[in-house]
Design a protein around this nucleic acid. Structure first.
Lengths: 138, 138
DNA sequence: TTAATTTTGCAACACTGTTGCAAAACTTTA
DNA sequence: TAAAGTTTTGCAACAGTGTTGCAAAATTAA
């Protein structure tokens, strides 16, 4: 397990540090999107706030995790699929936010529908956020 | 003009104050989504920060404006259509963010496409955010 | 005009995120 | 394995964003 995570770091030309291993492990274990605050709590205040911010930013830059826009003004992060690389994200899936438990899921199998945009507008990226109740909360 | 805005306030059981008139007027004039910061600047520092926050919150509660989730962790607000009322928003349109000028548009004529969600999940609301270049910036 | 209610501004605070810099950890090389 | 070079971390300090309590001011109702 640790080895697999180490590999991810090495493949991205990143030093293997306790902090990075721990944060990547949290994403792998939880299988859902996490906020900076979530990680700070889960890591048992072991790492400095600033370090966590920088680590998340590094991971986003490297295409290891992606950010998810949310309605309540908090940035969420989730693991990318293998198709993402440095500077090139391909996270074309729908995000689901459960209003009951607050969990944010990446629905990897649900693709973004085509949206027809008025003449004169050109589209780079489309984000779809769905709010509702997840399968564990009903 | 002022009278129309006053009416909106009265219809929602809100006192007609200089602050509220000004903020509603800014939304009407600009015809695009505004952040708290935008309003603070545009109102010429005439009103207290706190007052602006509270006014925006009041308007959201009353169904006069709605919030727009954004990727960069800032809350945007835009006028609702007449179909919204206290506690019942019906803002089922696509939002477009121009990466050039930063303007957020409500594309009222573009309806949210149907998204197929896995079994066990129930949907309350769907938000679609499109990033790209708007018609004024190309 | 006065009384009752609502809204505002101020002060103070909490939370989130950023930057610079020296110390510590990690990687590379021999 | 140890030393040198590089990267990462923790600390301190700060900026921006948003919230709360409370007394003063403005608005509405009488």
């Amino acid at each position: 397990m640790k080895d697999v995570i180490s590999e991810i770091l090495k493949n991205n030309q990143l030093s293997v540090t306790e902090n990075r291993l721990k944060i990547l492990e949290l994403f792998q274990k939880n299988g859902k999107a996490l906020s900076h605050g979530d990680i700070e709590k889960m890591s048992g205040k072991h790492f400095d706030r600033v370090t966590i911010y920088r680590t998340l930013q590094t991971f986003v830059d490297k295409g290891i995790i992606h950010t998810i826009p949310t309605a309540d003004n908090s940035i969420m992060y989730a693991l990318c699929k293998d198709t993402c690389s440095e500077g090139h994200h391909h996270d074309d899936h729908v995000h689901f936010l459960c209003e009951e438990c607050g969990t944010t899921y990446c629905l990897d199998n649900v693709t973004i529908p085509q949206v027809t945009i008025p003449k004169g507008f050109s589209v780079h990226q489309t984000n779809v956020l769905v709010n509702g109740i997840c399968k564990n909360c009903r």
